[in-house]
Design a protein around this nucleic acid. Structure first.
Lengths: 97, 97
DNA sequence: ACAACAGTTAGATGATTAGCTAAATATCAA
DNA sequence: TTGATATTTAGCTAATCATCTAACTGTTGT
């Protein structure tokens, strides 16, 4: 859980997750949205992978990253609950179907 | 907001907030709950103050720290909403009155 | 005034972090 | 095989971070 919060501490990584929210993207596509070098982005991806916030699948010469929404939810939910907040996930909200 | 996430990245600081959830405590009382030196704790308090997650009031020679619950809520809420989650605060949940 | 106490500031250290360039790995296409 | 492409690994640097001890500031009690 500490790994998740460490991962969320960096604005670039938070924005990566945000972009991934709309759907999977390759390392290259993600990198294109930031003004840092690819190796730097690669390091961010590693951090997100270690926090288990994304997963990666290699296909040919591209690697596709996907947000692991449930892990993010669980982390936020767990933390929020300690402080007496309640988290509702998207699926519980309104537009389930 | 980045300051809030940076503040939350450290486990000691998260536990300080958690302790403060039950009520205000002095710097000394808080320090007593951790195995690090007082100057180290003092630095953690500074970080939490800069993130606006706590406030401090001096009275005599003690400083009392208080959790600023609404700031924590707003940060978590803001972030969660970006990911399509909904946060309900304690006051909205059941025991409002 | 003086000693004890609560807390911080100063200054140092070792570890981690975010960033870079250059080089390596692996795939695809000719 | 050669060249281009996608991404990572290696190795470096500068900055930030968590921690420490020692010293300082301000308050209280005698």
């Amino acid at each position: 859980m500490s790994r998740v919060f460490k991962a969320l501490a960096d604005p670039t990584r938070r924005r990566v997750l945000e972009i991934l929210r709309k759907g999977p993207k390759t390392a290259g596509e993600l990198s294109a949205e930031f003004e840092v070098s690819k190796p730097t982005m690669s390091a961010h991806f590693s951090t997100l992978l270690e926090a288990n916030l994304v997963d990666a699948t290699k296909s040919g010469r591209t690697i596709t990253y996907r947000l692991k929404m449930s892990v993010l939810e669980d982390a936020l939910l767990g933390f929020a609950q300690v402080f007496g907040m309640e988290l509702k996930t998207d699926s519980e909200t309104s537009d389930t179907a």
